[in-house]
């Protein structure tokens, strides 16, 4: 149940889930950054890189949209929890790492 009468249970739930999903996505991208940076998948893993680039683009877009909606909903309710803000920061960080990983891989042949 909601602790704050100004926001509904839906707003709180969306806020918490935005953080959880973003944290998962951040971890997923970090593993890729380490794997491609340290050549854990060999020297030319073009197929896994293409596959992961597509998956990341999809997941990061959806997660980013979700966290933005979560923050916007809380701002309109005038009560901001830390979860969606943390989620937004994690999505921003994950996007940076993903772009760094794949521009390095596809840019430097």
């Amino acid at each position: 149940m909601t602790n704050n009468p100004q926001r509904s249970r839906a707003t709180e739930m969306v806020g918490r889930w935005s953080f959880r999903v973003s944290a998962f996505e951040f971890g997923f991208v970090m593993i890729q950054w380490l794997a491609f940076g340290n050549q854990w998948l060999g020297s030319l893993p073009v197929i896994p890189a293409a596959l992961l680039a597509i998956v990341d683009a999809l997941l990061l877009s959806l997660t980013g949209l979700f966290t933005i909606v979560a923050v916007a909903a809380q701002l309109r309710s005038k009560t901001l929890m830390w979860h969606p803000v943390g989620g937004l920061l994690l999505v921003a960080g994950a996007s940076w790492f993903a772009i760094e990983t794949f521009t390095r891989f596809f840019g430097h042949r």
Partner: peptide, 9 residues
Amino acid sequence: KQDATAEWL
């Protein structure tokens, strides 16, 4: 119409 999320949904 409770709040922004419910209204948006």
